[in-house]
């Protein structure tokens, strides 16, 4: 049994975190579930879009703002501005290129100034050294769950600047709108 998820899961405030893997967007939605406003920065050329109807299971789409930027540099500038301002507690960015140490550090400073949380949805293996925590999230087939109701995921905490690493199987609880840790089913 690994360490307690909840020492690191409601993502630490005033820091910027990273997540990769197929369920990264789901992780972002779960992490932003309780916050007042979620600011989501995406590059406008990407074909996949967020579906607010599906997101409504995790967070209220009325509290979601989406900024469409032309490239990653612009996106990072917008993210820094949003983090520093502090009026949005949770800022998400989808990146497509590796983040350098300087931009990563600038985001950390901005998050500290604005008392907000940042989350970068990164492609596999493109983490930045400045990140506070790095997660890898992937869906897991859930034999036990009722049909069409499974949200079982495996979360690997692969980097943590102030805490221990760990692996958890989690499931989204629709009624209480929070994450529940489950013990992995044995084969």
């Amino acid at each position: 049994m690994s360490a307690d998820l909840f020492t690191s899961f409601p993502l630490r405030r005033t820091r910027v975190h990273e997540v990769s893997g197929p369920s990264a967007a789901g992780f972002a939605a779960m992490a932003g579930a309780g916050t007042e406003t979620v600011f989501w920065i995406r590059e406008s050329w990407r074909p996949e879009v967020l579906n607010p109807v599906g997101l409504s299971e995790f967070l209220d789409p009325a509290r979601l703002l989406v900024a469409e930027v032309s490239d990653q540099t612009e996106g990072l500038a917008v993210m820094e501005e949003a983090l520093r301002d502090g009026s949005v507690p949770f800022v998400v960015i989808e990146t497509s290129q590796p983040l350098g140490l300087t931009p990563g550090r600038r985001l950390q400073l901005a998050a500290k100034a604005g008392q907000s949380v940042g989350l970068c949805l990164i492609p596999e293996g493109m983490g930045s050294n400045a990140a506070e925590t790095r997660w890898h999230c992937s869906p897991v087939f859930d034999r036990a769950a009722a049909a069409s109701d499974s949200t079982l995921q495996r979360w690997d905490l692969t980097k943590n600047k102030s805490g221990t690493l760990g692996t958890w199987h989690v499931r989204w609880d629709r009624t209480s709108r929070r994450v529940r840790v489950v013990s992995p089913a044995r084969e």
Binding site: A25, G26, A29, P47, E48, V49, L50, N51, P52, V53, G54, L55, S56, E57, F58, D60, P61, A62, S148, D149
Partner: peptide, 15 residues
């Protein structure tokens, strides 16, 4: 605007 309901499960990403 409010009033979001998903009568059936819907994906969070569409492409």
């Amino acid at each position: 605007g409010g009033g979001w309901t998903a009568l059936r499960p819907r994906p969070i990403r569409l492409f």
